[in-house]
Design a protein around this nucleic acid. Structure first.
Length: 527
DNA sequence: GACCAATCCA
């Protein structure tokens, strides 16, 4: 059966689409946790390519249905997709959390290859993202009872990360303490490091330090533990605290290694202001001092150390120094990575030296290093600045033909959308938009904003309005300027019917999802 | 998963 035939079968069984898919309203579904021992039926292994999973996922999102009718549709079609594959696809796509949970429950109960701990971990991560921690815990308990090789320490790492990302640090620590009862052993240093690392990554260095001081006698802290804490304090720009832990580390008889020094180096360079030149000089001086200190201890700088310095050169627009350092690191036998090359290329491109940047791009290729989208985006930014349409289109076409590591990302599209919209080439904007939707990397809030602003500038009010409503439906909250520009345009050109439709839409959404839209004012606009 | 790159609409 062809995909289009399957699509029509599925559609026939589906309920009408929902009115909205915003995430802030997320009713807990009936999980049916009292599963009655009915052993899962064995199902054949996945036979279909991931394209089908992708298409199915899109269809599911589009209709947003309960899945019972779908099961028969799938059986009718004789297709058995791997549940894990569809689940992963759903979770990759934006705003599909509710659909993903329904699918997970359905697939679990119908044994479509969703019994593994991986699927549970994916779901728990997603539930944490939308703050449904009670449901996440239900799944953890279910994992335990079902014996699906979990929950594992990784499951708890995911849960802990989600708690911390939400700012619920106390609950994160409690979850960490609850882990022992599930995994059947005491947490070790690595687990402890995970907790501290996650706290520090999200800026809770103070909480991490408190936990560390309370428990450092229970776990044997190692180099990683201290490096994590030093990273945390550097991140919040508290260098004196970073130094304090460096000292404590040495006092304990632990030797700082190259990673520890790179963390300190990045702490010096990360947000240092480089304007005017004497500030740049001061930063470089401090960085060189640290490099000397580490070399004095017999630790040689590695790619990361060089990449950190190169990033400073790039931010300060010093192409000569950049190239010089790249050369000297190669002479020392240190192989540049994508990050290294991207920093230098960004520096050259932003200084207008596109030919030199292209040379480096070729050098990367001959060294077998695959450029990432960020590498190409440096060129696009410069083309944008020069209004070089041909250059941009040529590079874009080249990227489209490349492997998945180098295909355009959201930023690529956003740069190009902004460029061609400003140059008034709306056919190309349209084409880019379609490419972006097709490749499922976007659109994001910026893409919508760029497109709508572009359309407003061209006075294409009804098109702009259409995209405005689409973005609301997808759960993006448009900026105030976007709303006001559109509002003014619709009123001034007497498009009152379109305006009313837009107004109803916003009122409908804000009724359901609370105060999010309150900064839009509906006062009649004075002409 | 102890460190390095990465967007710019008013």
């Amino acid at each position: 059966m062809s995909w289009s035939a399957l699509t029509s079968v599925v559609r026939r069984h589906l309920l009408p689409p929902p009115k909205s898919r915003l995430l802030s309203h997320f009713p807990v579904p009936e999980l049916g946790l009292g599963f009655s021992g009915s052993s899962p039926k064995p199902s054949p292994p996945p036979l279909r390519p991931s394209d089908d999973a992708d298409a199915l996922a899109r269809l599911l999102i589009h209709h947003h249905n309960p899945f019972h009718p779908l099961e028969s549709s799938l059986q009718l079609a004789g297709i058995r997709l791997s549940g894990d594959l569809v689940l992963q696809t759903l979770l990759r796509l934006r705003h599909a959390s509710k659909v993903a949970l329904s699918f997970f429950v359905w697939a679990r109960d119908h044994a479509h290859h969703v019994h593994g701990a991986d699927a549970y971990d994916l779901m728990i991560d997603m539930l944490g993202k939308v703050r449904q921690f009670d449901v996440a815990w239900q799944l953890i308990i279910e994992m335990d009872q079902r014996g699906v090789a979990g929950p594992t320490p990784r499951t708890f790492a995911i849960l802990v990360r989600r708690y911390i990302a939400t700012g619920m640090t106390r609950q994160a620590v409690r979850a960490f303490d609850d882990m022992e009862a599930f995994i059947g052993r005491e947490p070790d240093v690595d687990d402890f490091n995970m907790l501290l690392d996650t706290l520090c990554k999200y800026g809770y260095s103070k909480v991490a330090t408190e936990i560390f001081n309370k428990r450092k006698f229970k776990y044997e802290p190692d180099e990683k533990t201290y490096t994590i804490l030093i990273y945390g304090w550097c991140k919040v720009n508290r260098h004196e605290m970073a130094q304090k832990f460096l000292k404590e580390m040495v006092d304990r008889g632990l030797e700082p290694n190259v990673v520890t020094y790179n963390v300190l180096l990045n702490g010096i360079c990360r947000r240092a202001s480089l304007h005017p030149d004497n500030r740049f000089d001061r930063t470089i001086h401090a960085a060189e001092g640290l490099l000397e200190e580490m070399q004095g201890k017999g630790i040689e700088p590695d790619v990361t150390s060089y990449s950190i310095i190169l990033h400073v050169y790039s931010r300060a627009h010093k192409p000569e120094l950049s190239l010089c350092m790249l050369r000297s690191m190669k002479e020392k036998g240190i192989c540049p990575t994508v990050a290294t090359y991207t920093s230098v290329i960004k520096c050259l491109a932003s200084c207008g030296r596109l030919e030199d940047a292209e040379d480096l791009l070729n050098e990367m290729a001959s060294n077998g290093i695959c450029p990432c989208p960020a590498t190409y985006n440096c060129f696009f930014k410069e083309y944008h600045g020069r209004k070089d349409v041909d250059g941009a289109i040529k590079l874009y076409k080249k990227m489209k033909g490349m492997g998945s590591l180098s295909t355009p990302d959201v930023h690529t599209f956003n740069i190009l959308l902004g460029m061609f919209s400003k140059l008034n080439q709306m056919e190309i904007v349209n084409e880019l938009w379609n490419d972006m939707v097709e490749s499922s990397v976007g659109p994001d809030l910026d893409s919508y904003t760029l497109l709508i602003h572009g359309l407003c500038e061209k006075q294409k009010w009804s098109e702009a309005c259409q995209f405005f409503m689409e973005m609301i439906e997808k759960g993006f909250l448009p900026q105030k300027v976007t709303f006001e520009t559109l509002y003014r345009g619709l009123i001034q050109s007497d498009m009152l019917r379109t305006w009313r439709r837009l107004k109803n839409k916003i009122e409908e959404e804000s009724l359901k999802f609370g105060s999010e839209f309150h900064h839009y004012h509906f006062k009649p606009y004075k002409r």
